[in-house]
Structures are given as C-alpha cells and as structure tokens.
C-alpha cells in the first residue's frame, strides 16, 4: 500500500490540517517510509488473538448519576480566542 499526494491531501482534509501544495510530496514520502516500516506486523500470526483494549484488568467503574460539577461558564470561556455574550463565537456556519 503506497500513499500518493492525492491521498495525503484527502487525509489532511479529514484531519482538518492545512498542508501547502509543496508539502504534499515530501509528506507522502515520510508517510510511506513509516507505513512500509510498520508493514512488518503482517509477519506476526494473530489468528485467534483478541485485540488489546485495556492493559489494566479492571472493570470500568460506574458512579451515581448526580451532578458533580457545573456553573463554570466563565471559566470555560476564559481561554476562548473569541467569546461573545456567554458563547464561543465561530465563523458563520449557515447562510
């Protein structure tokens, strides 16, 4: 499996990353180098091996369904690049 510049542009868009045109080619080269290196995993027989989902053998805890936090609007907005009238502000989404 080899990644071309079109694929890099597509993944970059999926990841919401602006990559300039002239970076697509070198990035494709780097990704291919890493991906062909991890290709070695195909040598390992993993028939009937379950994927590891957690390294600690513990059940996820449940807690009482009660409010433990809140009333922190100003804290939450304090770091926003643009906050207006108690909301996060973003470029217009709907026409």
């Amino acid at each position: 499996m080899s990644v071309d510049t079109k694929t890099v542009a597509r993944i970059a868009h999926l990841a919401r990353l602006r990559l300039p045109e002239d970076k697509l080619e070198p990035m494709a080269g780097e990704l291919n180098r890493v991906l062909s290196w991890v290709e070695q995993l195909s040598e390992v027989n993993t028939d009937n091996v379950p994927p590891l989902t957690s390294v600690v053998h513990a059940r996820l805890r449940q807690r009482d369904d009660v409010v433990t936090d809140g009333d922190r609007r100003d804290d939450v907005l304090a770091n926003a690049p643009d906050a207006q009238n108690g909301f996060f502000a973003v470029p217009k989404v709907i026409e």
Binding site: M1, L35, V38, L41, S42, V44, T46, V49, P50, P51, L52, T53, V55
Partner: peptide, 14 residues
C-alpha cells in the same frame, strides 16, 4: 490492516 492488527500484536507483547 493497521490498527486492529497492531492491537492484536500488542496483546502478544503483553
């Protein structure tokens, strides 16, 4: 091909 495979090999390493 990649992620699930890696998580299986991770089981073997553990």
């Amino acid at each position: 091909a990649y992620y699930l495979k890696a998580q299986k090999v991770r089981t073997l390493i553990a």
